[in-house]
Every structure is written in C-alpha cells, then in structure tokens.
C-alpha cells in the first residue's frame, strides 16, 4: 500500500466473520496532506466491509471537520487499502481452512 501519511488500523480483533469492523485512523505525516490539518488524534469508526464505500466515510470525515476537502481522496485511499488487506487476509484464512 502507498504511504499516504494517513494510518488506518484495526481497532479490534478481526474474528473473520463480522461484516462490520472497528477501524482507527490517524495522521502520521501531516506534510503529506494538501489541506490545513488540525491535529485531532486517532479517529475510531465502524465500517461495514460488505456494504460501505471507503470514499463515503472519507467524505463524512471531511464534512465532520477532521480533514480538508482536498484530502478526501487521500483519506479514502488509506481506508480502501486497509479494507483490501482485511478482506485479503480473510480470504487467505478461509482458503487455508478449506
């Protein structure tokens, strides 16, 4: 995954079954952001791996004042990368069990 300067991690153990999972996002390198960034710590949120779209969550974070509009794409990509990794690990676990 590209280093966007925005870190997204699991905020809870992934049991491999739940479709909704808690994620935690924070900025590691504010210089990589285009917009003015006010340090606001780690943002924890729930994401439905099956139904939701990372870019929508990023837009909600912009609308909630965490990020500038010009960084919506960067935040969305960071969430998308982590979601892809979670899904890949789940598929790998399932195929290993099969």
């Amino acid at each position: 995954a590209e280093d966007t300067g925005v870190r997204v991690e699991l905020a809870e153990e992934d049991d491999g079954k739940k479709s909704s999972i808690a994620l935690k996002l924070w900025v590691e390198d504010p210089k990589k952001l285009k917009g003015k960034y006010k340090e606001s710590g780690a943002i924890e949120f729930t994401f439905d791996l099956e139904k939701e779209v990372p870019e929508v969550v990023a837009q909600e974070m912009v609308e909630s004042g965490f990020f500038h509009e010009s960084d919506a794409k960067t935040v969305g990509k960071s969430i998308r990368d982590r979601v892809a990794l979670i899904k890949w690990r789940r598929e790998r676990t399932v195929s290993a069990a099969a």
């Binding site: 870190r7 935690k24 924070w26 590691e28 606001s40 710590g41 780690a42 943002i43 924890e44 949120f45 729930t46 969550v57 909600e60 974070m61 609308e63 909630s64 004042g65 965490f66």
Partner: peptide, 27 residues
C-alpha cells in the same frame, strides 16, 4: 484517556482519542 465523539449527519459515530502511544514512539 480523554476522547470526544462526533456524530455525522448520516449517523456514523467518530470517536476521537489520542494517537496510540506505541505508534508515537515509532515515529
């Protein structure tokens, strides 16, 4: 640790807390 909540109009809850300590040490 202090944390704050922001609820987006679409209903999603954002819980803000300090960046995890361990990560800060890594930086």
């Amino acid at each position: 640790s202090p944390s704050a909540q922001v609820v987006h109009s679409a209903g999603r809850r954002f819980i803000v807390s300090p960046v995890p300590e361990a990560r800060l040490k890594e930086q």
